[in-house]
Each structure stands twice: as C-alpha cells, then as structure tokens.
C-alpha cells in the first residue's frame, strides 16, 4: 500500500475522532453549566468566521466586493440569493477586467 493510502486512512480515523470526541466528552456531564451552554451557542459563528477572516490579509478587491455584496444581500434574503449575488458580482467584475 502506498503512503497516500495510509495518510487517507489515518486522516479518516482522526477526523472521525474529532466528530465523536466533543459529544463523548460532554455527554459524561449530567448538567451543562450556563457558561458552557453560552460557549456552545457561540460555536457556529466563531468557527465559521475564522474560515473567512484571512481573506482580508491579502485582500483582492474583487473578492472583497463579492463578499460585501453577499453580506448585504444576506441581511434580507436567504442563502441561495446571497450566494448567487456574490458569485455574479465576482464573475461580473472579472469579466469586465478587474
């Protein structure tokens, strides 16, 4: 078996461990402290923000424009119009040579 195969296998095992780990640890406690509860409520926004934040380090004006437009559309409409508005903005600006 190749290195690639073993890397995939080990990566899969460790990834599954992260997916069950949080639940296995937390389910040992009968009551959840309100601070832990508040922290868990913040998880989605906290994690997802960190995935996008680095785009401002080497900003590409076109991509930032797409994100701003998408963010504004998201204030009013659901995820699909938001996604399309951002994509059209970037493709459009690129098409016109920006």
């Amino acid at each position: 078996m190749t290195d690639i195969f073993w890397v995939i296998l080990a990566g899969a095992v460790l990834t599954y461990a992260t997916r069950i780990g949080g639940h296995l640890v937390l389910s040992r406690f009968e009551r959840i402290h309100p601070r832990v509860e508040a922290g868990l409520n913040a998880v989605p926004a906290a994690v997802l923000t960190t995935i996008i934040a680095p785009v401002v380090i080497n900003p590409d004006p076109v991509e930032i424009s797409g994100l701003v437009v998408a963010g504004l559309v998201a204030l009013r409409w659901s995820s699909l119009p938001m996604f399309l508005a951002g994509a059209v903005t970037v493709f459009g600006l690129r098409y016109f040579g920006y």
Binding site: P44, A45, I51, S79, M82
Partner: peptide, 18 residues
C-alpha cells in the same frame, strides 16, 4: 472565491443569536 462567500452566508444565518 465561492468558498468564502458560502461560509459568509453560514455566519450571517446565525446573526439572531445573542
């Protein structure tokens, strides 16, 4: 560039939370 837009949408969808 689609991936950051997609994740931004997910972040925005939680803006009602305290």
């Amino acid at each position: 560039f689609l991936l950051p837009i997609y994740f931004l949408g997910l972040v925005m969808s939680f803006r009602g939370r305290s």
